[in-house]
Nucleic acid binder design. Structure first.
Lengths: 252, 252
DNA sequence: CGGAAAGTTGACGCGGGTCAAGGAATGTGG
DNA sequence: CCACATTCCTTGACCCGCGTCAACTTTCCG
């Protein structure tokens, strides 16, 4: 893990807000270039964060959303009896910190899994900008609404699905999200440990391990440590929707 | 939906936005009376809804948030294989419909459980008002942030907790929420069926039934159909945080 | 009053949690 | 560069919480 070069930073600056969720937040709803530049101007860019560093912890006074440009984050909180609950993962082009929108402090923590570059979007400046750019307000609501929908999807998963379906669904989610950012949908690295996956999906790490082995035996994919290669994407999709298969295939 | 009575409207108008989440949305952050009146002016009030009626269904084009003044709602969605997943319940003073903030259509459905009166907050008018009332924007974000936090709490519950802890936590949640609205924290009606509870908490209805019986045997509460009377609130609290008991008692 | 829906209770079995032992990759100090 | 520790992952054996199936009771409603 050598040191970070200025050059890389500059390169990434050029694509900022065009390759991430913030693009969804500006461009599609007909916001013109000027608005984008203005948005760029309130973004705080840090040096890359290193694995283990925290962007924030529960109770920290909340003042910003965070957009991941590269790397990966984990969101989690601590239960009353002291153990961790993983709430989700933030991949490049995604936002975290929305639970800080209420109350003035975060309810969760965000920790870096892989070396990451992250943009910071201060609430107060966002709010001001929302007044100038009418579309931005709608877009922020949209992003937040999507977060809620996605949490609800998880609720469904945890409430009703078997361990097998949950892991399959998790892999599909990663696949889709990487693909959205023009990365391979079938071959990628898991930025998180088995521990984190099991915790997130509500199952023991042993179960995660066994299921990976089982998927591999069935020829659905290859896993080696954190390297995943999906061989039969439709096969994996089929595990998520056990019934009504021949309906439309291109849902999520 | 036929005509509405002026009289009822006027009576309820007096308490509108002062006894519900919208109060949190206006008053606490120093918004003056005038702002409140202005907010009132965009609210659409309907005749009471009857059990079984839908406020919206998945795919309906989304145009409003809904605030429950009295009664109770259930939010749910339909999985790929056709069965229902209950996402939550909306009690008096609470909002639903936030998953419609993205996309332009709802991802979930909202159905009435008990005869309810409901206020409708059209997105477009809310948005306009946000520009005039700086505090409102922040408050909306706050409400949405709280929704996210609460969904995350559910994720924790479903992922890590036993059926017993989940049901206890559910009862405490109802208790707290009723209490916030100046209703009894220890004696209330369940607006939803065992079916709904089980579905929501990710367990079989038989398990719900057995746990209720067990709680009763232990002297924690009395349940008769949908009538609940909590006898030992601290006892119930103790089930949710099995470890570190003697810490602070007054958390949630 | 009869039929359906909602809730309760008991018997049984399986999915997956827990415990335990062992590999494989990575770090650490000598 | 090699012993050794540590962390991460895998695999097997056991067993319990809770889902499933089934029978029954109670409430609701036309």
């Amino acid at each position: 893990m050598p040191n970070k070069r200025k050059k890389l930073d500059l390169e990434e600056l050029k694509v900022s807000c065009q390759n991430c969720t913030l693009a969804d937040l500006c461009l599609p709803h007909g916001m013109e270039k000027a608005a984008l530049v203005e948005l760029d101007s309130i973004v705080v860019r840090h040096n890359p964060y290193q694995p283990g560093q925290h962007l924030f912890r529960p109770g920290d006074s909340s003042h910003a959303l965070y957009a991941v440009r590269s790397g990966a984050l984990k969101s989690y909180c601590i239960t009353e009896d002291g153990d961790e609950q993983v709430l989700g993962f933030t991949l490049p082009g995604e936002l975290t910190g929305m639970d800080g929108l209420s109350g003035g402090s975060y309810a969760s923590a965000a920790v870096v899994l892989e070396t990451s570059s992250v943009c910071e979007l201060p609430f107060n400046r966002l709010e001001g900008l929302c007044h100038e750019l009418p579309g931005l307000h709608r877009q922020m609501m949209s992003v937040v609404g999507r977060e809620i929908t996605s949490d609800q999807h998880m609720l469904m998963l945890l409430g009703k699905r078997t361990a097998e379906e949950r892991l399959a669904s998790f892999l599909l989610s990663l696949s889709t999200r990487y693909h959205l950012r023009d990365l391979s949908a079938t071959e990628f690295n898991l930025p998180m440990s088995r521990q984190d996956i099991g915790n997130y999906l509500g199952m023991a790490i042993e179960t995660v391990s066994r299921l990976f082995a089982q998927f591999q035996d069935r020829g659905l994919l290859e896993v080696r440590r954190r390297q995943v290669k999906i061989l039969d994407l439709d096969g994996v999709r089929g595990m998520v929707e056990p019934c009504m298969r021949q309906q439309d295939a291109g849902s999520m």
